[in-house]
Nucleic acid binder design. Structure first.
Lengths: 205, 205
DNA sequence: TGTACATCAGTGAACGCGCGTTCACTGATGTAC
DNA sequence: TGTACATCAGTGAACGCGCGTTCACTGATGTAC
């Protein structure tokens, strides 16, 4: 549907997009290569012109996901004129927004079991995205008196874990559906309490 | 291998255990019914005497998992003579211990995409386990002045999300392997900071 | 502008394979007398 | 205690199916002259 090159036009990217749709619908292992080919309107054999197999297709989806993810986090973090705190909370919100807007990418990245060492590009893209979180945490930590300042990488791991947990448990259909709170509220309030525990904000708001 | 009943002995449970092993090794969708049967030393057709299909087999694994999980949480929480805080931290540690000791169960419960509404038994078992967390959070909340006390279910959701995030990102092989912190330390420090944010403990230890 | 040729993305047929599911069966165990 | 019968867990053969992967091919597009 893109700019039509030789025959199909942009089969490689079309396959990635079909894969993302299928991942979103049926999970990272819930579809076959043939199925992805068929839904793209192409013979299964055609896939091999672009990918060595299913795993490489998913790796490409994850790679693109990390790219978008890094951009969204960077964009959120860039607003740090306001305050380092606001920047971190914005990053948290960006995390959720990404998971919500790009569920296929999110699953490919974090639930497909793909290793970041699958390719150097993938490792680099992931490093870039997670680097943003680390920098946000590091900016924050700088305001805590050194003698009781936790390592920045620990703070960023906490925030990441909380965000990921909220996504997996409360922003999907599966088990936690029963929670009476919107995922956004849950994450925001959790981060606020956490930051207040670091002595970075007053307990109220 | 158990007490040998008619032919095999305890095929139903043997199948569940094979499934758990396979889930642990290859993920919840990474094996077939036939494979599970073969590894149990039995014809694929025999499985149908005990389960309607693959999904019911996994549901049974999840059900047993919730049972063990609830027991571990209850046991940890029962030690609340000490203090409500200690009880919550013990629950957090029990959460991690469960994920580590019963990885197959954990995956069946939280990553297999199974719905808690699959059966009333499953819903009940899950409710029992998560109820422990809610009660622990509720005991804690009681110590916070009402005007600035968050709902207990929100506190328990925060703790659960943090625990789950730590497990998924840092206690597995996949992406977060790079973290320089042990999952246990990460969770414990995260919970401590969070509780201090609730005004429940002094910032130092 | 037109023609001849090179490229290579996608085709379609073919293969062997393991899957899920069914079915009539068999034979070990439990039980009634 | 021994015998005859009932039960039903597990067998093994059978089926149709879609899978991944290969291969020689074809035909649309790009390019040299």
């Amino acid at each position: 549907m893109a700019k039509r090159g030789y025959h199909h036009g942009n089969l490689r990217q079309a396959l990635v997009e079909t894969a993302l749709k299928l991942i979103e619908e049926k999970g990272p292992t819930g579809f076959t290569l043939s199925e992805a080919a068929k839904q793209t309107g192409v013979t299964p054999a055609a896939v091999y012109r672009h990918f060595r197999g299913r795993e490489e297709l998913i790796a490409e989806a994850a790679l693109q996901g990390y790219g978008i993810f890094a951009e969204m986090l960077e964009h959120a973090h860039a607003r740090k004129q306001a305050s380092a705190l606001a920047a971190l909370e914005a990053a948290g919100r960006a995390y959720l927004a990404f998971a919500r807007e790009f569920p296929g990418h999110y699953v490919a990245m974090f639930e497909s079991g793909i290793s970041l060492n699958h390719s150097p590009e993938l490792a680099a893209a992931a490093g870039r995205a997670l680097g943003v979180l680390e920098r946000a945490a590091s900016d924050l930590s700088a305001r805590i008196p050194p003698q009781r300042r936790p390592p920045a990488s620990m703070v960023s791991a906490h925030i990441w874990a909380l965000s990921h947990g909220v996504v997996e448990l409360f922003a999907r259909g599966s088990p936690g559906t029963k929670s009476p709170f919107a995922p956004e509220d849950l994450l925001e309030s959790g981060i606020a309490i956490y930051l207040s525990g670091l002595g970075l904000i007053r307990p109220d708001e």
